[in-house]
Design a protein around this nucleic acid. Structure first.
Length: 639
RNA sequence: GCCGGUGUAGCUCAGUUGGCCAGAGCAGCUGAUUUGUAAUCAGCGGGUCGGCGGUUCGAAUCCGUCCACCGGCUCCA
């Protein structure tokens, strides 16, 4: 007998060689049906794999993250089986589970698989699922595995095999399909009841753009049909929040083929929104001792040679523009920091002046490949809420903490609760990717780690994600479709001050090199607003709303009264419009609802007589009549 | 940049296997209506069918090429 310890600390005894399904059966039959895999001593195992020794076991169902991964990974194998039948000779790459399903990268040879082929593949998968084949795990020697895939002609599997050690190789088989796989898998294909293949895309083999482009097929599956229906409904909902759709509908911004792709054009309402965001941060920064500056949109190429950006990112900038007579080379500025370094360097500084915090909403232009462009979140021209702090090494940590406080203030003020903070350090294996001394890197990295610890911020750490000049802390938020976007960023930099030979005179009357912090709480106005639109589904926080109310007269006899109301509200700093079209009140309400204007103030005979307005809240309905003063007071409580 | 898809009026979409002057709803304009909590009625205007080139007696429809957009990949100071 062996001892099985459950997550709640309970210990039960089982025969050696038991498995997760049997353990589940001993608890309840319902549970046994739902078990897809099990966490055994920290490793996810097949639910049918024999457990021979004492172990800590957590049974996993589709409701667990790891359970989903098992289910979807098995679904990828099922799809591969279907593909092998429908497209004989297909070569298989890798087919993992992902956050929302699974994919398989395949090389179908001469055949092209398109969207219209997916229903056929789905159908075949369902057929195979109904055959109720077991997923069978089989340990194998490297030599046997190689000979199997050699005979099959699966060169990608052979390449994967090369990296594996003999003795740790397993194959999984369901039906007639055998795959190189470390598992784990569900017990039987029959558990897969609902299947939807989402799309096809190109993907480079091993993620290397110099190698073969594979066909990647994405799909998602569920144990119950109802779950699939719900998932598809969720996707529909998410689409409605898409900032590209809402941005057009609410007339916030536009793109023009003539102006150029990736170059957002801000319409009046979007500009109103953006200006309010900028003003909010500008005021906050003044309070916190920042000095606003303005620098040109272009800078000599030499400036970026000095900063190192030209060497590192020259190809990702717009090509230099030339002065017509002298032939001097200028870059459309891809970064504000070199300009700000020049500001710091234009006169000598005493240590008594530090820290110096130079802030600018600086518009920058970068060449993004055409296929990268995406709404407001990936563009070729954007405005950073940029600032650079020049301080002494002793001040670094306090300054970092100050920036952290500002960034978190901004994020919470905008209603983001679900964000993650990522510490990006250098990859110690790839020193050539970075500039600057080891000593400086270590100092910078530990400053970030200590500061985040001190404020108790939950972080993840990524090696190799640092900027080339220093480590950084990024704030990431997910959009409506679950894609993760970087918003605010804080970066420590010992290197630019060196490249620009920046100095201050210390208490010892000797020159010293300042440390620099790059930071942008929003990141870029474009991306931030794009994510904000999706976050609030176009219903912005009241203080940002381009129009806070619409006054809707029931007949044009009340227009004069409406104008008075509007003036009175303006005196309370509440902004809005009057819809004085000769339309029915029902129509005016509908149109205002669709524009997502937070308050409708309806004015008719009764309201004029009582000197009131009938308040209706967007998305909620009639709230009854109030005087202007009452409304203004109520409004103030919502800000 | 690479793979796949899409591109018809301001918006959402019809348009059979290439064949009369390319259609609808909404929006717009004009007029009527003066309305009580999510679409008042009538009339009218509006499209080089993404651009260019080709095949054909004839192209929105077939071919080529370029552009833009969508989903991914790669990249992201």
């Amino acid at each position: 007998m062996i001892n099985i310890t459950f997550p709640d600390g309970n210990v039960r005894q089982y025969e050696a060689g038991t498995n997760a399904i049997d353990i589940a059966k001993s608890i309840s039959h319902g549970l046994a049906k739902k078990v897809v895999s099990a966490n055994v001593n920290g490793e996810v195992w097949d639910a049918t794999r024999a457990i021979n020794e004492d172990a800590k076991v957590q049974l996993l169902t589709f409701d667990d993250k790891d359970g989903k991964a098992t289910f979807w990974h098995s679904s990828a194998h099922l799809m591969a089986e279907a593909l092998e039948i429908l497209y004989p000779g297909t070569k298989f790459g890798a087919g993992p589970s992902i956050d929302n399903g699974f994919y398989y990268d395949i090389d179908p040879g001469e055949t092209t698989i398109t969207l219209s082929d997916l229903p056929k593949i789905e159908k075949k998968m369902l057929e195979l699922a109904r055959e109720k084949n077991d997923y069978i795990r089989q340990e194998t020697s490297k030599a046997d595995a190689i000979s199997y895939f050699k005979e099959k002609g699966d060169e990608y599997k052979l390449e994967l095999l090369e990296k594996l050690n003999d003795g740790e190789i397993t194959l999984y088989k369901q039906g007639n399909f055998v795959d190189l796989c470390k598992g784990p898998h569900i017990a039987n294909t029959g558990d897969i009841k609902a299947i939807k293949l989402m799309n096809v895309a190109g993907a480079y083999w091993q993620g290397d753009e110099n190698r073969q482009q594979m066909t990647r097929i994405y799909g998602v599956t569920f144990p119950k049909q109802k779950q699939l229906t719900e998932y598809l409904e969720l996707l529909e909902e998410a689409k409605k929040r898409d900032h590209r759709k809402l941005g057009a509908e609410l007339e916030l911004f536009m793109f023009s083929q003539k102006v150029g792709s990736g170059l957002p054009i801000w319409l009046p309402k979007g500009t109103a929104l953006r200006t309010r965001l900028e003003d909010f941060l500008k005021q906050e920064q003044i309070k916190r001792g920042y000095t606003p500056v303005i620098t040109p949109h272009i800078g000599k190429k030499d400036l970026y040679v000095t900063s190192g950006h030209w060497e590192k990112y020259g190809e990702d900038s717009f090509s230099p523009i030339l002065t017509p007579r002298e032939g001097e080379e200028f870059l459309l500025k891809p970064m504000n920091c070199p300009h700000h370094c020049e500001i710091f360097g234009h006169k000598p500084h005493s240590y008594k002046e530090l820290p110096i915090r130079i802030a600018e909403f600086g518009t920058v232009y970068r060449y993004e490949q055409s296929g990268e462009l995406h709404g407001l979140t990936r563009v070729r021209g954007f405005t950073q809420d940029d600032a650079h702090i020049f301080c002494t090494p002793d001040q670094l940590k306090d300054e970092f903490l100050g920036v952290l406080d500002l960034t978190m203030h901004v994020i919470s003020k905008l209603g983001f609760k679900d964000f993650t903070a990522q510490i990006s350090l250098r990859d110690p294996e790839k020193n050539e990717k970075y500039i600057g001394s080891d000593e400086n890197w270590e100092k910078a990295e530990s400053a970030i780690i200590e500061a985040t610890k001190e404020v108790g911020l939950e972080t993840t750490t990524e090696l190799g994600e640092a900027a080339f000049y220093g480590p950084k802390l990024d704030f990431m938020v997910k959009d409506a479709l679950g894609r993760s976007w970087q918003l605010g960023t804080i970066q420590v930099d010992y290197n630019l001050p060196e490249r620009f030979e920046l100095e201050y005179i210390g208490a010892d009357n000797q020159p010293h090199r300042p440390v620099m912090i790059h930071r942008a709480p929003f990141g870029s106005m474009e991306r931030f607003i794009g994510v904000l639109i999706e976050h609030c589904a176009g219903k912005f926080p009241l203080w940002l709303s381009p129009e806070q109310f619409a006054i809707l007269p029931i007949s044009d006899r009340f227009n004069d009264y409406c104008n008075e109301i509007k003036d009175q509200l303006a005196a309370h700093d509440i902004r809005g419009i009057i819809d004085d079209r000769s339309e029915s009140i029902g129509r005016k309400i509908r149109d205002t609802e669709l524009k997502k204007i937070p308050f409708m103030l309806i004015v008719g005979e009764k309201e004029v007589a009582e000197n009131k307005v009938a308040v209706r809240i967007q998305g909620e309905g009639d709230k009854g009549a109030m005087s202007v003063q009452e409304f203004a007071d109520y409004f103030a409580t919502l800000l």
